[in-house]
Design a protein around this nucleic acid. Sequence first.
DNA 1: CATATGTCCTGAGAGC
DNA 2: TGCTCTCAGGACATAT
Length: 302
Amino acid sequence: MPELPEVETMCRGIRSIEGLQVMGFTMCECRLKPISIQPEASVIAAILVGSKVHKVSRLGKRVLVWFSGNRVLVIEPRMTGIVMLEDPPNQTHLRLEFRLVRGDAQVGLTSKNPTLPMLGEQKLLFWDRRGLGTVSLMSAEELEQQLVQRLGPDALQMTPALYVENFGTSRREIKVALLDQKLVAGIGNIYAAEILFMAGVDPRSRCDRLTSKQWYRISEATHGILNQAILHEGSTLSDGTYRNAINGEGSYQQCHRVYDREGLACLRCESGTVHRIVQAQRSTFFCPTCQKKRGLHPSLSD
DNA sequence: CATATGTCCTGAGAGC
DNA sequence: TGCTCTCAGGACATAT
C-alpha cells in the first residue's frame, strides 16, 4: 500500500539513477494482464533511449522520474507496485525494466578508479503483483494540468490553517476525507488511522464539526506519523508486498498503534480495545475510548 | 457542486 | 487435498 512514506522511501532509494543515461526500456512479457502504460512501451522507449535522468521526485503517492527534454515518467504504484533498483521479489510480476549507464564522460574514469560506482549497467525496475499500477510519460505541462492541479497540498506541507481551509466545510467523515487526494496528497488507509489515533480524533467525526484544536492536533499528527514512518522506511504488512528499492522491508509496521490491531488492547488508554469499522468500503481501526468526537481523552495533553 | 458507489487486478487465507 | 469465496485499498469513472 504505498502511501507517502513508502513512496518517499522508493524515491530516496532510486535517487542514484540521477545523471544516468537510458540505454533501453522494455515492458516485461508475462501471462498477466499488462499494466496500464501511456503511451505504449515502444513509444516510450523511442523517446527516452539516449536521454538522461535529470532527477527523481515525489508527487503525493506517485514517483516522478524527470528526463532531459522536459519529459517526466509518472509512476503510480497504487496497491502493490514497487519502484526498485534490483532484486525484485519474483520475476513473475516484474513489469518494466530500464537499462541505464553512466554518461560517456565518466566511463573512462570508472575503470581506473574502483571507488566510483561500477562500470556497466544499472537497472530501474517496476514490479507490481496485482498490476493496478500505472505508468505514463508526459511533458511538464501535462503533469501540471493533469495531476498537480488536481491534487491537494502534500501531506508534509499541511498546516492547521490549510486543514481548516480544505476540509473545514465538508460534511464527510474525517477518515474518509483524509483519503481524498484532492484535499491532501499522500495519506492512505494505514496512515489515516494512525494519524487520527495520535490526534485523538474519532474517525467518524464530520469535518465541519471538528474544532480548531482538533485540526491543530490532526496537523501535528500528520507530520509526526509520516516523518517517523519515513525514518522507518515505511510499513511492510504481513503480505510482505511492500519493499524498498533493494527488496528490504520497512519497519514502521512495528510502530502501528491501531492499524490491523482489531480486538487488541489500546496501547494508550489500557481500558479500551481497538475496534474495526468500515468507512467507504475500507477498514478503519480506532480506539473508541480515547478517540472522541468532542473533547479529548484525559490521557491526551493539550 | 459535493458526496457515494462501482471497478480494476492477483494471491493469500478462510471455510467446507 | 483442492475447490470456491472473500478480502486487501490505490485512483478514477460513474451515479446520486
